[in-house]
Design a protein around this nucleic acid. Sequence first.
DNA 1: TTGTTGTTCAAACGTTCGTTTAATTTTATG
DNA 2: CATAAAATTAAACGAACGTTTGAACAACAA
Lengths: 213, 213
Amino acid sequence: MSDKKQQKPNSKERILRTAISLFARKGFAETGMRELAAEAEVNLSMVNYFFGSKKGLLKEILDDFLSGYLAIAREKLAGTGDLHSRLERFIVSAVNYFEAERDSLIITISELPHDDPEIVEHKASWAGQMVEIVNRELCLPHGEKPGQNIPATCLAPMLTSLMASRFLFGPLMEEVKAGSSRAVSTENYTKMLVGILLQGITGADNKGGERKI
Amino acid sequence: MSDKKQQKPNSKERILRTAISLFARKGFAETGMRELAAEAEVNLSMVNYFFGSKKGLLKEILDDFLSGYLAIAREKLAGTGDLHSRLERFIVSAVNYFEAERDSLIITISELPHDDPEIVEHKASWAGQMVEIVNRELCLPHGEKPGQNIPATCLAPMLTSLMASRFLFGPLMEEVKAGSSRAVSTENYTKMLVGILLQGITGADNKGGERKI
DNA sequence: TTGTTGTTCAAACGTTCGTTTAATTTTATG
DNA sequence: CATAAAATTAAACGAACGTTTGAACAACAA
């Protein structure tokens, strides 16, 4: 018994982990409670016991992921440093976070457009805070240059979608070309994103400086 | 009777349109056959009569959308012209297509990561062709410059995700800030994308020419 | 011990699901 | 008109859904 209790963690945590895996692979509505309970090796009732309902479980997954994403945005986009370095360290942190929590990312993106009133307020709350940060740290400081002002409600989705593309399309691309996920390392992927984004959103007046890649 | 029969189109088409709307708003699995039939003003059995099954209906929606997207990629990315103009006209066409078929786009993206074996082969077939086009028309001609070669299995998802972000996040952003969808016109949105992408993926050696925006 | 609190369990709740059947109505063709 | 084909209908199928119940079990304090 050198480990604490690695072989049998909390039932609640086991449910959470299994749910994240199943929801990402099969979809939330397509995953049944009995299937989830069986895979997590718990009794059927335990899900409702710990999370109240199936949607309560989904809400916890979304909140866990989005709060982590928002914390990264808050920490990395703000503070000292010019736009380039702040954006770069944000992308590095966010992409690493997406990779570590890729199943939660897939669930979040997949459930994004659905208008379940019980869920949509949660998403809107997180999205609103994200837009606020992007607006304060990225849009406003560079709104001086005319013709380059991208609204935060447009830029925030762009950034998130671009960073998430690798993981959203990952399973499908693996089906298309086996091993394609490992053809580009995560480190190189972030470098690509930084290169694309920095030289783009900083304007056409960029005279080839900032050779970040 | 000036119109052909605008008030009552084919039942099959009515089912298709209603399904696209409901699947996009509520999700595929969350939408019931009875709800769909009621909203389409059609008997419950008609869905299976015309489409075989609920999944057959989804497959038709996905195939319709993806074939149109692939046709645009084929037509706009290939042909004469330098990379800049070809990429620009592709983005213009694709974004307009996404806007016209935004519900189908939402359905396609939302169902992307799910591994239903009956659906995944369809998606993989389309994705494989898309990757092939991107590789032939974008990656290979510019693979000469070292350090800038982004694999097509990485670039194609990037392009698609970036163009789709406006529509994927649209409903949520409207919840965050009413009217945000109309804050940026589709034309300006495409110009933003062109500006970001062109100056990014064409490399850091770009000396500020090509002021497309 | 007794009582309490937090888990786990088997069983069943009523509902809704996607699908099928068989009869009927409509449409088109000879 | 007659007849075959296509479209539409009401009703029911068995299966699976999310949820609830009430009892049993574990750990621990009084």
